[in-house]
């Protein structure tokens, strides 16, 4: 069994997703990663080293494979190879990503998880909306657990309130995301003929 279906939302998963979009090489991946995930100061930033390390680990796990140089030869210089070797995702890589995207998002996803899901999960707006509804369901279940929790000590009350407000923020984000995804056909406000 190759691959790891339990990949965490990490640079490795993001690189796998980028290679599923199209084959690419190290230097280009660094630039693409930044364009997709790190364009804003508050977004996700990783070092080029982390991208190259991700490529090595994905290759070890057989989720990606190197492409030939075109003249049938492989890079001999390891530094050159690191910079310019092209890779593509394998069937195992594609399955791993699919399985990961199919798992519902928790009520407190990391920013990395959120970015990967929104970027790679949007095969269609409908799929993305379904993902958001599952995410909302997870948040509401969490709120039910919070609602049922007894908080007798000061510490318990502080933690409970912190958690409730965190989940409330997620729900507000889901409201925004669902509104953003509504097309002209299901917009909240739409023109009507007189």
């Amino acid at each position: 069994m190759v691959g790891n279906a339990k990949l965490k939302p990490s640079a490795r998963l993001a690189v796998l997703g980028l290679l599923l979009e199209r084959p690419s090489w190290g230097y280009e991946l660094v630039a693409r990663f930044e364009r997709v995930f790190g364009a804003q100061p508050w977004e996700w930033r990783v070092t080029p080293t982390a991208i190259y390390r991700a490529l090595n680990r994905l290759e070890d796990d057989a989720m990606i494979e190197p492409l030939g140089r075109g003249d049938g030869e492989r890079w001999t210089d390891s530094k050159q190879r690191r910079m310019r070797q092209s890779y593509r995702a394998t069937g195992d890589g594609a399955r791993t990503m699919r399985e990961w995207l199919a798992v519902p998002m928790s009520s407190s996803p990391s920013q990395e998880e959120l970015l990967i899901r929104v970027h790679f999960g949007d095969a269609s707006d409908e799929l993305l909306r379904a993902m958001l509804r599952r995410h909302a369901a997870a948040c509401l279940e969490e709120l039910e657990r919070i609602a049922a929790a007894t908080a007798q000590t000061r510490m318990q009350r502080l933690v409970k309130e912190d958690r409730r407000l965190a989940v409330q923020a997620r729900l507000s984000w889901i409201d925004f995301a669902l509104a953003e995804l509504r097309g002209p056909d299901d917009a909240r406000i739409r023109p009507v003929e007189r």
Partner: peptide
């Protein structure tokens, strides 16, 4: 907001006219 969830047996969310949850 969600300040009234304590003691609720079920918690739902209205989002853009759509009711989410159980």
């Amino acid at each position: 907001d969600t300040a009234s969830v304590t003691g609720a047996d079920r918690v739902l969310r209205l989002s853009g006219g759509e009711l989410l949850g159980r």
